[in-house]
Design a protein around this nucleic acid. Structure first.
Length: 296
DNA sequence: TTGCAGGGGTCAA
DNA sequence: TTGACCCCTGCA
């Protein structure tokens, strides 16, 4: 056993066991709308492909288990991916300043914002436009299977999300096999722009959230909402408040008590939640969607 | 069984 | 500011 950043980490056969993990609930993390490649297994654990690896993740009473990982994998990959260096209890305490947020936080108490690969996040959220989650998952899986590297886990085949060059070298016609519909054109064009560094994804973290959003919006298929999602779910910026129809509905019903414009909601969030806007958005979105808040 | 509306938005007119 | 857009699912 070793100690790493306050966690006890044990490697056992094909897995790592991490003790002293708080504010971690797989259902909340994987089903709060930030990721599309984690599938719930019969035993309640989740198996997913991320950062070129396949692992199975489960959690019980402070103990996190990651199957198909070593201690080195934990330190170099999963510690960061699961944002384990951040104390979510502090964030929750700061955000729980009204009854609405208290309820939302209680409901999604185990949410953590994953630090996902920004390229994969970009393409995934271009696909999300005017689309449903099961469909988005199918398209991302299909693109990975067609263009990504095969990975074997538990004698099953999985596929890593493809590198930029792979998609940039594809034709729109071939991409359409993945059922992305009208978004395939955006994917093809965006891939070329990213490959040629017309937009440098690595430079975004050094910009303000506003500038980073504007930079991303240069890409076809990327508007404000998709840009905010990309920035938040890649762990690049946390002071953004992705406002989709669900967030709009929950904000209108619970805070505004009337219809509100996107701009009003964005301005309100920036003032009210400040640097923690992104975290607030996740708790609110998950709460709204799971409880169908604002649906007539 | 067939038909139709609409979805975690973006783009173009 | 408004409608079209691929494809799929849910519901008449």
């Amino acid at each position: 056993m070793i100690e790493y950043r306050g966690y006890n980490v044990i490697e056992k056969n094909d897995r790592v066991i991490v003790e002293n993990v708080r504010d971690f609930e797989p259902v909340h993390i994987f089903e709060c709308g930030q990721c599309f490649r984690w599938l719930k297994q019969d035993d309640g654990s989740y198996t997913g492909v991320a950062l070129g690896k396949v692992v199975n993740v489960s959690y019980d009473n402070g103990t996190l288990q990651i199957i198909n990982a070593t201690v080195n994998d934990f330190i170099n990959t999963w510690f960061g991916y699961f944002d384990l260096g951040r104390d979510y209890s502090v964030i929750k305490q700061q955000l729980a300043k009204d009854n609405i947020m208290k309820k939302a936080i209680e409901f999604g108490h185990g949410i953590r914002i994953l630090k996902q690969d920004i390229w994969e996040t970009l393409i995934s959220f271009i696909i999300s436009a005017n689309n449903r989650i099961p469909m988005i998952m199918k398209v991302v899986a299909s693109i990975s299977e067609m263009y990504g590297e095969e990975i074997i886990f538990d004698s099953k085949k999985y596929y890593a999300f493809p590198a930029v060059d792979k998609l940039a070298g594809s034709s729109v016609e071939k991409l359409k096999v993945c059922k992305g519909g009208f978004r395939c054109k955006y994917i093809a064009e965006t891939s070329v722009l990213v490959r040629d560094k017309a937009v440098d994804l690595n430079a975004l973290s050094g910009m303000s959230a506003d500038d980073a959003r504007k930079e991303l919006a240069k890409l076809p298929g990327v508007g404000n909402k998709v840009a905010d999602c990309v920035l938040l779910y890649s762990g690049t910026k946390y002071d953004v408040f992705p406002t989709d129809v669900w967030v709009k509905r929950v904000m209108e019903e619970l805070y505004f008590k009337r219809e509100a414009t996107f701009k009003e909601i964005q301005d309100f969030a920036r003032k009210y939640f400040g640097e923690l806007s992104g975290f607030a958005q996740q708790y609110l979105f998950y709460y709204a969607r799971e409880n169908k808040i604002g649906l007539k």
